[in-house]
Design a protein around this nucleic acid. Structure first.
Length: 196
DNA sequence: CGCCCGATGTGCT
DNA sequence: GCACATCGGGCGT
């Protein structure tokens, strides 16, 4: 298995969000590998994107998004949930891809245990569920995702045809104004359309 | 399955 | 203070 390169993440955030579909998110722990195929992503792009955390400018929390591509941006929200994002684009421009859903393929027993034995379809079908399932938290903020010497990375997958990719507005934006509320920067593929 | 709502801590106004 | 890139339980359909 081959890690996606640092250069891969330097592309435009919407391109990275699209291309991450079908790739393999891998978490290494003491017992081995936990992994899943990426099924759903969202792009967050720059200070002008009023849904992006960087809308408030550079702060302690958002600093990672302004840094180099290919690093994890992991943040805490709603008092109990962690979210995993991938920093993209040139250094200095804040942009990141939120990983929203994966299809578990390695370490499934431990993933089920981490998820308190939820039914299969709901093991990893949400950004906070993924972090719980793979034991991802703020200690991984800033980690390089193109290096399999680390404990979290993304590997090359089989790829997904454009015909299988769905786009739609991003989820959970609440009062975010247009055009940001409706811009179709959510990318998804049905698990059944993965090539096995 | 869908809708409603409470949980619970942090960052920014 | 309050909003928040969410989740899971409860209850109605």
């Amino acid at each position: 298995m081959v890690c996606l390169s640092e250069g891969f993440y330097e592309q435009e955030v919407t391109v990275v969000a699209r291309l991450l579909l079908g790739m393999r998110l891998v978490r290494k722990n003491a017992d081995g590998r936990l992994a899943g195929i990426i099924l759903e992503t969202e792009a967050y792009r720059g200070e002008e994107d009023l849904a992006c955390h960087a809308r408030a400018g550079r702060t302690h929390r958002t600093a990672v998004m302004y840094g180099k591509a290919g690093r994890a941006y992991v943040y805490f929200t709603y008092g109990m949930h962690w979210m995993l994002n991938v920093v993209t684009g040139p250094e200095g421009f804040p942009a990141a891809v939120l990983i929203r859903s994966i299809h578990p393929v390695e370490g499934i027993d431990q993933i089920k245990s981490n998820r308190n034995d939820r039914p299969d379809p709901h093991l990893c079908d949400g950004p906070a569920k993924i972090c719980r399932a793979l034991n991802i938290d703020g200690t991984l903020n800033g980690i390089a995702l193109f290096d399999d010497e680390n404990s979290l990375w993304i590997e090359q997958g089989k790829g997904v045809s454009d015909l299988r990719v769905r786009t739609s507005p991003r989820v959970g934006l609440g009062k975010t104004p247009e055009p940001w509320k409706s811009i179709p920067w959510r990318y998804s593929v049905d698990c059944r359309d993965l090539i096995n």
